[in-house]
Design a protein around this nucleic acid. Structure first.
Lengths: 344, 344
DNA sequence: CTGAAAGCGCTTACAG
DNA sequence: CTGAAAGCGCTTACAG
């Protein structure tokens, strides 16, 4: 069954009465084919239903495939990035393939390497744990754009939201509402709390802004383990007597905090929550989560643009920073104005 | 820069003082290599940091890559399937690559074909629009498992939730709560409302159960266009005077309905909503959406198992049906017991 | 403009 | 157990 030989370039060449090289030129839109030959070849291609094999093409030329590595399929922020990337690739000959890093096995570079092994023409990756030296080495072989890196690299491009500013804006938002106790709940990613990661930069921005405002910083670190964040949120809220503002490291965390808030029947005036990433669910009226938007879709699109530039020959490295903005919604409110009752 | 030649099997063979064939056998765990040779080769591989290229391997043997096609990256039900699939592939030599079908361009087979072009060893696809004849043809060349197909095919495996039963259970649930007006809001997928798709089978189950209960069926068809479903939900609710139960075709639709319900300040007792797929967000206490669970994660795992069986040589086609169950939550309630007030 | 030939990095029979 | 040779389906210089 599975042994049926499929149509190759040879079959097309035979059918069209030309050489394989000629067919190759036609399918690559390469220079130097007469209109008649092109017509004959295209007719043969359609008739036979020929499709070039990416694997064979990749051996000599391009695979016309862009690889996108994402940390997990469960954080919807990455869905936005993928959406931007695929949309940016419409009308090009490139196809996106996505490699999710195995969340259970925690292997950073593995998914990226798997993409490289598959001879993609370029890689967009989102990973804060892979060391720069490793990336530089990889980038010498394959065009690479990293999302969420605050440094400018030598051989690859970097693209990042201004996480310091984002956290500052979030604190500012809570402060302006009237909050004075503002807690930052964030991920303890280990590795000496990897400096320079988006989450750490948000911590930096948080600390900075709190200092500016003369407020006491208060950080709750959460291990990225199932259930840890919900428990941490519950613990935090069990000690709440006065109003508190909570800046969560990202929306997934914020949703856990909201769950704990709902469980205790607290209002936004008592416990205001701000997330980060502005994922789709944040805008749902039943969630209505205030969140810092860092333009995920646009990030995906820009990453692809940078990558295509690299594939086209650019070697100087680029570093782009996107400006975040606070999307204020109902999860954050002024502690001054208590509503008629807790909203159950 | 990008021209640095990377390590090939030849380099390893030279370093280890053996033939390329020997190296090939070692990396494939093939029969017939002495322990010493294996040791020498493995040492050389590690020293040189050799990684076999999937493209080259695919020319003769396997690419050790499984392709998963999903309709869109925005429906979180598909995230579950991917999760199940990747988890099932841990500890195998296979890597998953995902190809999202372009939602804007609506091209069904294109993403699947792109995977086939990339010489994956097998494909798991979720698509209700691709004709069976097309799939049969493809399946002759590459092992294929289709999720969400109610027919048994000849050359590929099919795996599906019992959508008729799922819809029946949902209607039953609403009926038992006390609802008598039960509306089904579902997607109008065109193509003569493609019979046999999961959504159409849910319509069948809905109609059947309504008839059994002696109730009047009432179906609202929604075009899969941005904003259409929300508008339809608003229209539906604007005419609500007596309690209504609404079965949405899937959770994404249900979320829109919930939004409309929230906008009008209706309670679950006035407008009960049931979704389908039981995506993560449904369980969030602020959403608490009653939903039909069809074991997405398990589907992904089973699909991979079936695919590996096919890759291993099975040719007889399999057809598996999963039994759904209703996850009752707060979005559905008895119309008899009005709570103290609308929950804003 | 067109094609014959070499080669990409592997695996696969086939000898030894 | 080990290796030399052929070949997978393309693209790429290079002649013509």
């Amino acid at each position: 069954m599975q042994t049926e030989r499929s149509i190759t370039i040879e079959d097309v060449a035979l059918a069209a009465g030309v050489s394989r090289a000629a067919v190759s030129k036609v399918i690559r839109d390469a220079y130097g084919v007469s209109p008649q030959m092109r017509a004959r070849v295209e007719a043969a291609i359609n008739e036979l239903g020929y499709r070039p094999r990416a694997a064979a093409r990749a051996m000599r030329g391009s695979s016309f495939t862009i690889g996108v590595e994402i940390p997990t399929v469960h954080n919807h922020f990455f869905s936005k990035i993928i959406d931007g990337a695929t949309t940016a690739l419409v009308d090009t000959r490139y196809q996106v393939i996505i490699a999710p890093a195995d969340p259970h096995h925690d292997e950073g570079p593995q998914a990226i390497e798997a993409l490289a092994d598959r001879q993609v023409d370029g890689i967009v990756a989102i990973s804060s744990r892979v060391p720069q030296t490793w990336l530089e080495k990889l980038a010498v072989r394959v065009p690479l754009v990293m999302i969420g890196r605050h440094h400018q690299a030598e051989h690859y491009d970097t693209l990042v939201g201004d996480d310091v500013l984002g956290a500052e804006l979030a604190v500012q938002h809570l402060f302006e509402l009237g909050h004075r106790r503002i807690v930052h709940l964030t991920l303890d990613e280990g590795r000496g709390a990897a400096p320079g990661t988006p989450h750490m930069m948000r911590v930096v921005g948080y600390r900075q802004k709190m200092a500016d405002l003369g407020l006491e910083p208060e950080i709750v670190w959460v291990k990225p383990v199932q259930g840890e964040s919900l428990q941490a949120a519950r613990d935090l809220l069990s000690r709440v007597d006065a109003p508190v503002g909570i800046l969560a490291g990202h929306d997934e965390l914020a949703l856990e905090v909201l769950q704990a808030v709902a469980e205790r029947g607290l209002t936004a005036a008592q416990a205001s929550v701000v997330g980060y990433d502005d994922t789709d669910v944040a805008a749902h009226p039943m969630i209505s989560l205030t969140s810092v938007n860092q333009s995920g879709t646009q990030m995906g699109a820009i990453a692809v643009r940078l990558l295509l530039e690299r594939i086209a020959g650019r070697t100087a490295s680029a570093h782009e920073v996107l400006t975040p903005r606070v999307m204020a919604r109902n999860s954050s409110a002024s502690p001054a104005h208590e509503p008629e009752g807790s909203h159950h």
